[in-house]
Write a protein that binds this DNA or RNA. Structure first.
Length: 150
DNA sequence: GCCAACGTTGGC
DNA sequence: GCCAACGTTGGC
């Protein structure tokens, strides 16, 4: 059992969209490190902090869980998609996605609030220059954040 | 819209 | 295999 923070742009898929849809395929990851987390380390039931990025109020907006193990991201094969990858083939797909299931919408735990807790100072998301859209969360960080949100 | 940070690409 | 150029991310 692992824990993750996954960034999504609420203009694309926000926590309300996830709640409405129940679960979503986490399409569009085009970074090898993030892909490898999904492909190699995610397990069914892993806890996910659903994070809103590139928006007026960036921060954790809800909780989710991994509901399907990694499988090929269909958008890589779709020439109409902005995530189309001409170098990828169905036989040897380059990009993977998992499904993520809605668990709860929470209050917005804003980025500037996250920065205020010394318990969270080690979080990858808070490190300078971090751009990874999927990052591991330690059990201690997960517990601390869950306590803040419930 | 700016720009720092960082990943990827491609010529050599 | 190096590394400059380029593209993207994402907070501000």
């Amino acid at each position: 059992m692992n824990y993750w923070l996954m960034k999504s742009e609420p203009d694309d898929v926000g926590i309300d969209d996830l709640q409405r849809m129940g679960s979503v395929g986490w399409y569009g990851v085009r970074n090898y490190q993030a892909r490898n987390f999904m492909r190699d380390q995610m397990q069914l039931g892993d806890g996910v902090l659903f994070y809103h990025s590139s928006c007026p109020e960036p921060g954790v907006a809800g909780l989710a869980e991994v509901s399907k193990l990694a499988y090929p991201d269909p958008t890589q094969f779709d020439p109409e998609s902005k995530y189309f990858d001409p170098k990828s083939t169905v036989e040897a797909p380059r990009w993977q996605q998992v499904d993520v299931r809605f668990v709860a919408k929470t209050r917005l735990l804003a980025l500037d609030e996250l920065r205020r807790y010394s318990e969270l100072a080690g979080m990858t998301i808070l490190k300078r220059g971090n751009r990874l859209s999927i990052t591991p969360v330690t059990p201690a960080e997960w517990s601390f954040i869950k306590a803040l949100l419930t």
